[in-house]
Structure formats: C-alpha cells, structure tokens
C-alpha cells in the first residue's frame, strides 16, 4: 500500500513537472489530391527546465512539430497540453495572448524589425503586455544585458552582425519571462563562432534561470549541449536517428 502511494505521488510530481505534453499528435497537409503526413501520432512530454533538441533528417517533421507546440499551426488530430492548458480549447485570439505571455521564439532568420533599435525590438512584446515605459525599458535593458548586448541597445539591425541580431532576437524572446523558449534552427545562418556563442547562451539561460528550451537543429554536435534529444523520422518519434 505504501509502495503504491509513493508511485502515485511520483506520477503527480511528474505531471506537475511536465510543461508540454502531446498525445497522438498528427499533422496532415493536403496538396491537391495528395495527403502528406508530416507528423504521425506523436506522443511526448517535455519537463519544466528541460533543454531539449528536436533532431532528425530533413523532412522528418522537426519544424512541423515545433510549430504545433509553439501554436503557430493547428494539428489535424491529437492533443497538446501546455502549462496545464488544453490548447485545442483556445480561440485564435486566446492563442495570440498565450504566445505573448508564455512563449518566446527565436527563428532561423534573425526576424527582428529593421526599423527599430535593438532595445525597441526587445521591449516590443513587453509593451504589448501593457507595462509602463519605465518597466519595459528596464526589462528590455535587462534582457539585452543577459545576451551581452547592453552597449548595443541603440543600434539598428543593419549595424549589427548576424550573431548579434540573433542575440537581440533571443533577448526579445526572453523579455516576458516565457515559460518556454522555442528556437527553430537558431544557428543555421551563423558562422561557427557565433553558433557556439548562441548555444552557450541557451545553455547558460537553462542552467542559471531554469529556462525551458525546445530547439530544432540539424547539427549533430548540438546533441552534446542539450539535456535530451527528441529524434524524429518520417513524422514519428523514434529512439535514435534512423
């Protein structure tokens, strides 16, 4: 009886620790008369504070999975629970607010606005949350400090290197203290030195503030820096790369 109670408590602890849970998640695209399955009944859990990589060959469904979990796309079937919220019950506008409050994104392309300075790019999501100017500027500077670009706050993207622009994008992703940071091949356009810097920054954020990070990458050596690799092949989770 005692043994059973401990098991139940362990399961409950595990459930509380789980920030992302998917059950039988599928995404099928219709192209003319063809049906193409990009994800097939994917079931996985990601724990709070975990730094996980999604890896697999090109076309294996890595980005598609990240888009479903990041609420950028809607799955054809299956269930996603994020931070104890069942996502299929959310309207589009609720998903937008959910993304603003709980997620941070870093894209392969730097994806920052060329018309704004580094600081303005970073504080935009905080401004959209309704913070006062003093609050969002302070938080923006803190975020830039974290990525080592405080002295570049007033520079515009065209005055910065690719690696610096990606770090601005990371600072923007961090400003609202997101529950999950999604990164879609964040180093694909960077040289090896800048790539290393970005990955070390992710590692430090994960280690120092317990940031949950889910990153799509096709670089095998990135597996060494993450806690766990979720391998995908033909839209399904597999034990190792096939």
């Amino acid at each position: 009886m005692m043994e059973r109670t401990e098991r139940v408590e362990q399961v409950e602890r595990d459930e509380q620790d789980t920030i992302i849970a998917t059950r039988n998640l599928s995404r099928t695209y219709t192209m003319g008369k063809m049906q193409m399955t990009a994800l097939n009944r994917v079931t996985l859990d990601v724990r709070r504070g975990e730094f996980a990589a999604i890896m697999g060959k090109s076309g294996s469904g890595k980005s598609t999975l990240l888009h479903q979990l990041g609420l950028l796309d809607t799955p054809t079937e299956g269930e996603i629970v994020i931070d104890e919220v069942e996502i299929s019950g959310l309207s589009e506008s609720e998903k937008t607010i959910f993304r603003l409050e709980k997620f941070g994104y870093v894209f392969q392309e730097y994806a920052i606005l060329p018309e704004m300075t580094a600081l303005e790019n970073v504080y935009l999501p905080a401004m959209a949350l309704g913070l006062s100017r003093e609050e969002y500027v302070t938080k923006g500077m803190d975020a830039l400090e974290k990525v080592g670009l405080a002295e570049r706050a007033d520079h515009r993207p065209r005055e910065m290197s690719g690696g610096e622009q990606q770090r601005v994008a990371i600072a923007r992703a961090l400003i609202n203290k997101p529950k999950i940071l999604f990164a879609d091949e964040p180093t694909a356009n960077l040289d090896s030195a800048s790539s290393r810097q970005i990955l070390e920054l992710f590692r430090a954020l994960n280690r120092d503030i317990g940031q949950t990070i889910l990153m799509v990458t096709h670089e095998l050596e990135d597996a060494d820096i993450v806690d766990r690799v979720i391998w995908l092949a033909d839209g399904e989770v597999v034990d190792r790369e096939g």
């Binding site: 990041g70 950028l72 506008s93 937008t96 607010i97 993304r99 603003l100 409050e101 997620f103 941070g104 994104y105 894209f107 994806a111 606005l113 935009l124 999501p125 959209a128 923007r172 992703a173 609202n176």
Partner: peptide, 15 residues
Amino acid sequence: RQMGILRAIGIKESI
C-alpha cells in the same frame, strides 16, 4: 514576413 513574425511573438492582429 514581418507581420507573420509580429503575430508569432504575440502581437495581436488588430494592433
């Protein structure tokens, strides 16, 4: 693309 990114990071369509 910029509009897509703004929406992705949580900026409302109405904004």
